[in-house]
């Protein structure tokens, strides 16, 4: 692979550079250690293996303490460890926005956040928007305005739209477009996604 040239920085190279991983260590995911009320347990209760750490974070209002590999991204932990597969991975290198979640009120690419950085953070994913069967207005607007075509970018579009509406309840069309501009949609459904965000703003 040495004579591969001209490649951009991959997420993997990036992770290597930040010295995250002990390459090649045998790892079996311990996954989810505990769920609600996990904060009550002291960190020392479980000794993490080399290259792993325990992280306490809140996802969709629920507290978790989980052991993660240093090289695991938040997107991977959400999907593989917490079973929250509504967060999609489109590029895994911070370009497409399919993995967008809201971290402490800001929309961010979860593929570009290491899970170990998430200690003490509050994370909102697409699964956390609806209250039971009652959809968030932005979700209903995405259905009514045909926001999803293939639907793979939809969670990310919705989370960026939601983050916008949290900070600006009545955005202009230009503001909505700008706010979603980090979310690619190869189906090209951009008109619809912006329409849906603006409709959600009106529905509030």
């Amino acid at each position: 692979m040495d004579d591969k040239k001209g490649k951009g920085v991959s997420r993997r190279d990036f992770l290597k550079r930040v010295g995250a991983g002990s390459v090649g260590a045998a790892v079996i995911s311990k996954g989810l250690l505990d769920a609600p009320g996990a904060d009550a347990y002291p960190t020392e209760a479980v000794e993490p293996a080399k290259g792993r750490s325990i992280v306490s974070l809140k996802v969709n209002g629920k507290a978790y303490r989980i052991e993660v590999q240093h090289r695991q991204t938040l997107a991977e932990v959400l999907r593989d460890e917490l079973g929250l597969t509504g967060t999609r991975i489109g590029c895994d290198r911070g370009e497409c926005g399919a993995c967008t979640v809201i971290i402490d009120g800001r929309n961010m690419y979860s593929c570009s956040q290491l899970a170990v950085w998430m200690s003490g953070k509050e994370i909102l994913t697409v699964e956390g928007l609806a209250k039971g069967d009652k959809l968030d207005p932005i979700q209903q607007a995405f259905i009514d305005h045909d926001g999803p075509q293939c639907g793979f970018c939809t969670s990310g579009q919705i989370m960026s739209g939601k983050a916008l509406l949290l900070r600006n309840p009545s955005p202009s069309e230009a503001q909505a477009r700008r706010a979603l501009s980090g979310n690619l949609c190869r189906c090209g459904n951009y008109n619809r996604e912006v329409e849906a965000v603006l409709a959600a703003a009106k529905a509030r």
């Binding site: 597969t85 509504g86 999609r88 697409v126 959809l135 259905i143 969670s155 919705i158």
Partner: peptide
């Protein structure tokens, strides 16, 4: 007509191949 599977698509519940564990 809105899609019949719109709910699954906007809630993250739609199971794509990569979600199969």
């Amino acid at each position: 007509t809105p899609r019949i599977d719109g709910f699954e698509r906007v809630t993250g519940k739609a199971e794509y191949t990569g979600d199969v564990q």
